[in-house]
Amino acid sequence: MASLVTEIPAAPSMEAAIHFAGRLSLETDCWDVCESLKSEAPDFVLLDVRGPAAYARGHVPGALHLPHGKITERRMAEWPEGTLFVVYCAGPHCNGADRAGLRLARIGRPVKLMIGGVAGWIDEGFALESES
């Protein structure tokens, strides 16, 4: 008798490779963001898309504050075409980063979601910085 894990067979390897490559093209994690921010010139712009009070209470060091509702083509023109934006919000219980990702994609900007958001950042043991 098959277990709950194996009662539905695993996908063929090529199908799994396509699936996971697709996810990684849309997402990054807190560890990778933290490690990448240690370089002198990160190759992406990190956006905290939460409201002003949440950002002020604590955000990922190096993140720029741009609430998802303020993402417009005009605003994003500050950065060259092709700039990769990594967006995050409070965490898995928040859809602000998804909204930001959708806005960026609709205006033709490359975007990845930092999975876990602030909750994931803290879970990894990384510190936030605050505006105080």
Rank of each mutant, 00 (worst) to 15 (best):
R50I: 04
T6G: 10
E27N: 01
H59Q: 04
H19K: 07
P110Y: 07
R99L: 14
G58M: 04
A90S: 15
R23G: 01
A97W: 08
A56L: 08
G82T: 10
C34N: 11
Y88V: 10
K112V: 10
K38L: 11
W31M: 10
I122G: 00
F20M: 06
A53V: 14
L37P: 03
M76H: 04
S39D: 00
A10C: 06
V49Y: 13
Y88M: 07
D98Q: 15
T83F: 09
N95Q: 11
D43R: 12
A63N: 02
Y55P: 10
L113K: 13
G125T: 06
Y55R: 13
E7S: 08
K112W: 02
A54C: 08
E78G: 00
T72M: 11
P9F: 04
G69E: 09
A127K: 05
V87C: 11
C89K: 14
E78K: 15
G116W: 01
E15V: 03
A77P: 01
G117A: 09
G125I: 01
T72N: 09
S132F: 07
G120L: 05
D48K: 08
P80T: 10
A119Q: 13
V111G: 12
K38P: 01
L113R: 15
E124G: 06
R103A: 15
R106A: 14
A53Y: 00
G101V: 10
S130A: 11
L26P: 00
V49D: 10
A56S: 10
C94T: 04
S3R: 09
G108P: 07
P52R: 12
W79P: 03
Y88H: 14
G108N: 09
L24M: 14
S3N: 07
L84D: 02
F44Y: 05
P80K: 13
S3Q: 03
P67Y: 12
L128W: 03
A100R: 12
M114S: 02
F44V: 08
W79I: 09
W31N: 13
R103H: 14
V111A: 05
S39M: 04
L37W: 00
P110G: 00
R106H: 14
A10E: 01
A10Y: 00
S132C: 00
T72K: 05
E73G: 12
G82I: 01
S39Y: 04
R50W: 05
G125W: 05
C34F: 13
G116M: 10
I71T: 14
A16E: 06
A11Q: 01
I18Y: 02
E81V: 04
H19Q: 03
E129G: 07
E131I: 01
C94D: 05
I122D: 12
T6V: 05
E7K: 05
R109K: 13
H93P: 00
I122M: 14
W31H: 13
H19D: 01
Y55E: 13
V118D: 05
E124Y: 04
M1V: 09
W31R: 14
G82C: 01
R106Q: 15
W79E: 08
G101R: 14
E81N: 03
C89Y: 03
R23Y: 06
E78S: 13
G96C: 07
A56D: 12
G82Y: 08
V111W: 05
G108M: 09
E129R: 05
R99F: 10
L46R: 02
F20I: 02
R50C: 12
M76Q: 02
K112G: 10
